[in-house]
Design a protein around this nucleic acid. Structure first.
Lengths: 204, 204
DNA sequence: TGTACATCAGTGAACGCGCGTTCACTGATGTAC
DNA sequence: TGTACATCAGTGAACGCGCGTTCACTGATGTAC
């Protein structure tokens, strides 16, 4: 109900409680949406569902957003940002091992936004597609180790390899998720692609 | 309207016109659904939309199918069968060149069912996921050249490579489709992955 | 072969339901004095 | 500092709409005689 909002309200300093609380509530709605959209797709989450999951009633939604489509774009950006934050700080082998895994496949709501929603994004308006294109670029930057030199011939070749690695990783997760839970093929796809990607790394 | 059904009715021999026509109409509904689902996703196509596109009114739908979910499973199987038929008869390089292409990306309704719907399939009941798993297996068989020896160590290694190729091909199409139409990245993903896949082929 | 009748694919109005959105209301915030 | 008032985030009932599904009806099919 409203308990969640009250609880977090009490955690905030009493000064400016309201304005700060409004911002916090809004952020909670976006974060909740980002998770639910990843789990059930854009169309699988209603405004009322979402607001209830965030601890509110549905009517207040339009005090924060003009329409559901606006939230979709914002939640996509939020989800991608979280995905990027979670993907940083490891080398390519570490990324592949954790990304192309059963754990990631089975944790849609907390997993990669690109993998969870790129099928849906293809049918969404340009605002959301633009978030995806930007997210892919940022993901490539994270995979490159961020500080990599840009523009040189070596980095251009490296960029191509990273795009291929990302496409295969996302393809593997998506195909595995499309199989029944008990199908051996679901695990085989992940195992085989993880091994293939790691092998291609050690060749380079 | 009904013109389409009447036209094709006149093309059939007069004997058993009705039973043959019923089967033909049903097949047309499934084929139309398979195309529309690929274009707009399972949730993006209503029963009334679908029936109108097939040349009927919506009420007759339930003379053929118990529920929309039943058609979804059947249309998925139909779409995969068409995809497989279109993918056969070329070598791996030919497959990659035509699959990882702008033409394929831009022709969702006539393109690969696995790529068009695997994002949606992940959230569908087991019946549809089972069609996907079977479809992936059949696609691997088609890519292997169909008559390939099964069970040997060489074929096991080959199977692993084919799974990796399929994952990367599908991932490339899906990522490209998630980008805005005018984003350079959309084409770059296809170009880079196509080249990467062809290069990995010539290494083996 | 010809006639009367049962069947059933297809029609189109109607249904209940859940969706996104709107709106009058509330009560605490935070300002003006 | 204390009091009166405007603001506005959040509530919950209500809306119009499109969805999947149902149903009484139709007319041609194809069977029984």
């Amino acid at each position: 109900m409203y308990a969640c909002a009250l609880k977090s309200m009490s955690e905030v300093t009493k000064m400016k409680v309201t304005k700060a609380q409004v911002m916090e509530n809004r952020a909670r709605i976006v974060a909740t949406a980002s998770e639910l959209f990843r789990e059930r797709g854009y169309d699988g989450v209603g405004v009322a569902d979402l607001m209830e999951a965030a601890g509110f009633t549905h009517g207040g939604f339009y005090k924060h957003f003009g329409a559901k489509a606006d939230l979709m774009a914002e939640a996509t950006a939020c989800g991608i940002a979280r995905t990027l934050a979670a993907s940083g700080g490891v080398d390519a082998a570490g990324f592949i091992t954790s990304y192309v895994s059963r754990e990631h496949r089975d944790a849609r709501g907390h997993g990669c936004t690109l993998a969870a929603l790129c099928g849906d994004a293809a049918r969404q308006p340009a605002a959301i597609k633009a978030e995806f294109a930007a997210g892919i670029e940022e993901m490539l930057a994270v995979l490159a180790g961020d500080g990599a030199m840009a523009g040189s011939a070596a980095s251009r070749e490296n960029r191509a390899r990273l795009i291929a690695v990302l496409a295969q990783s996302i393809g593997a997760i998506m195909l595995s998720r499309a199989c029944p839970d008990d199908a051996p093929l679901a695990d085989e796809i992940l195992d085989v692609c993880c091994a293939d990607l790691l092998a291609s790394l050690s060749q380079a």
